[in-house]
């Protein structure tokens, strides 16, 4: 890939994220009850589940730097997080692509912001679209793509900027079961190469148990280890089934 232009690509990419007794919430709105203390290891995939309204999106926006914590400190590799940077990409449930930009132009956007030269931008975007299986759709506008294809473009866009952490807010929540399973496999496949740290919010316990190394139950603040992360066959293993039951009980 583009190792010559983006030297970060050759280094281990994942960064450590940590929340030190953080109180989440909007300055002029309601605060999320309780505090969160959590360390997310470099390269880890942390799934976050919890009842709706428990602050899952607020957690992601705080990690992104869009929302300052009401109390406590949020750090990336030990450095306090102040404002959003290209190091921590945010991935949304839907409608996050700029509708006036083609698929390729959307993927090029983070590269343009990093002032990558045009030719290299073109090459890199084409490469990413190829990796998510949309090589033939580069010239289409978002509304000309299906919901699953749009999320593929968004995945390419989120990773094209070589972020060291990806914060995903119910990324596959609006997709049908079949497309969702395809996207999960694609995500696992691509993340293996990038090594980025991932925080993955979902309301689907099966998805959390399939993708996550650990699962954070945001309502109670407990973190549970997943016995067989990213193994499709492990769904009915005794450990997984037991964990599934415990998570459902807690929700």
């Amino acid at each position: 890939m583009s190792t010559t232009v983006l030297p970060a690509a050759s280094e281990p990419a994942g960064s450590e994220l940590a929340l030190h007794d953080v109180r989440l919430g909007h300055a002029d709105g309601a605060a999320v009850p309780g505090t969160v203390a959590l360390r997310i290891a470099p390269g880890e995939l942390l799934a976050v589940v919890g009842p709706s309204g428990c602050g899952k999106s607020t957690l992601l926006r705080t990690l992104a730097g869009l929302l300052p914590p009401l109390d406590g400190q949020v750090t990336q590799d030990g450095e306090p997080i102040g404002r959003p940077t290209a190091d921590r990409a945010l991935f949304f449930q839907h409608d996050a692509l700029l509708p006036w930009r083609t698929a390729r132009a959307n993927v090029e956007l983070p590269l343009a912001i990093r002032r990558v030269a045009r030719a290299e931008r073109r090459r890199s975007a084409a490469d990413w679209l190829d990796r998510v299986g949309l090589a033939g759709h580069a010239h289409k506008l978002p509304h000309q793509l299906s919901g699953g294809q749009r999320q593929r473009v968004q995945l390419a866009r989120a990773l094209a900027g070589r972020p060291r952490a990806v914060l995903m807010d119910e990324p596959f929540g609006a997709l049908d079961a079949h497309t969702r399973a395809e996207m999960q496999d694609l995500l696992v496949d691509i993340l293996r190469d990038t090594g980025a740290t991932v925080v993955f919010v979902t309301h689907d316990v099966d998805e959390a148990l399939h993708l996550g190394d650990r699962v954070l139950l945001l309502g109670s603040g407990r973190v549970l280890d997943v016995p067989h992360p990213r193994e499709r066959d492990a769904r009915h293993a005794p450990g997984t089934a037991e964990l599934h039951r415990r998570i459902l009980d807690s929700l």
């Binding site: 730097g65 869009l66 996050a96 900027g161």
Partner: peptide, 12 residues
């Protein structure tokens, strides 16, 4: 929609 702005901000 604020999502577009948030996306561009988190691209740096």
């Amino acid at each position: 929609t604020p999502v577009w702005e948030e996306a561009v901000l988190t691209m740096g």
